[in-house]
Simulated scan of single mutants.
Amino acid sequence: MDRVEFKEKVIEYAHSIGIDDIGFTHTEPFVEYREKLIDYHEKGFESGFEKGSIEERTNPDRTLRSGRSIISIAVGYPNRLPNAPKSKKGERRGMFARASWGMDYHTLLNSRLEKLEAYIKSIDASIECNSMVDTGVLSDREVARRSGLGFIGKNGFVINPTLGTYSYLGEMITSFPFPPDEELIDSCGDCNICVDRCPTGALVGNGQLNSKKCISFLTQTKGFLPDEYRGKIGNRLYGCDTCQQVCPRNKGINTDHHDDIILEPEILKPELTGLLEISNRDFKETYGHLAGTWRGKKPIQRNAIIALAHFKEVSAVDVLKRVAENDPRPVIKGTAYWAIGRILENDALGYIGERFKIETDETVKEEMLKGIQESA
Rank of each mutant, 00 (worst) to 15 (best):
K370M: 10
I300M: 08
G148T: 08
P248Q: 10
G90L: 07
E35W: 02
T58R: 04
R355P: 00
R249F: 15
P177T: 06
N303Y: 10
A99C: 12
I261M: 05
N110K: 14
G153A: 10
L308A: 06
R92S: 08
E359A: 12
H26C: 09
V195D: 01
I278P: 03
D21M: 03
F356H: 09
C243F: 05
T363D: 14
I159Y: 01
Y238C: 13
L225W: 00
I261T: 05
H289M: 09
E50V: 08
G150K: 04
E35C: 00
L225A: 03
H26E: 15
R281G: 00
V10H: 09
E5L: 12
A339V: 07
I267A: 02
T360Q: 14
K89Q: 13
I54S: 04
V10E: 11
C188V: 11
A84P: 00
R302A: 01
I253P: 05
W294N: 12
E117W: 00
I262Q: 11
R230W: 00
Q208M: 14
D39S: 14
N280I: 02
V331D: 12
F30E: 03
Y77S: 01
S375D: 04
N79I: 10
V31R: 12
V246D: 06
R3L: 14
T286F: 05
V317R: 06
H257R: 13
V137Y: 13
F224I: 01
Y287I: 05
R342L: 05
I73A: 07
S211C: 13
E128H: 07
L37V: 06
K333M: 13
C247I: 04
G296W: 08
F178N: 04
K251M: 13
P179H: 05
I352P: 02
P248L: 11
G371N: 09
R68A: 11
V246A: 07
I233A: 06
L184G: 01
K284D: 09
L109Q: 01
E325M: 14
L203G: 05
S175F: 06
K321H: 08
V364Y: 08
H15G: 11
G353T: 07
L225G: 00
T135E: 06
V319E: 06
A97W: 04
T200F: 06
K222Q: 12
S216H: 03
G201V: 07
P29G: 10
N235I: 10
V137G: 04
D227C: 00
R281E: 15
I120P: 02
P161V: 02
P85V: 00
N235D: 15
V246P: 06
D134Q: 01
G350T: 13
A376L: 15
W294F: 15
D256E: 14
E313W: 03
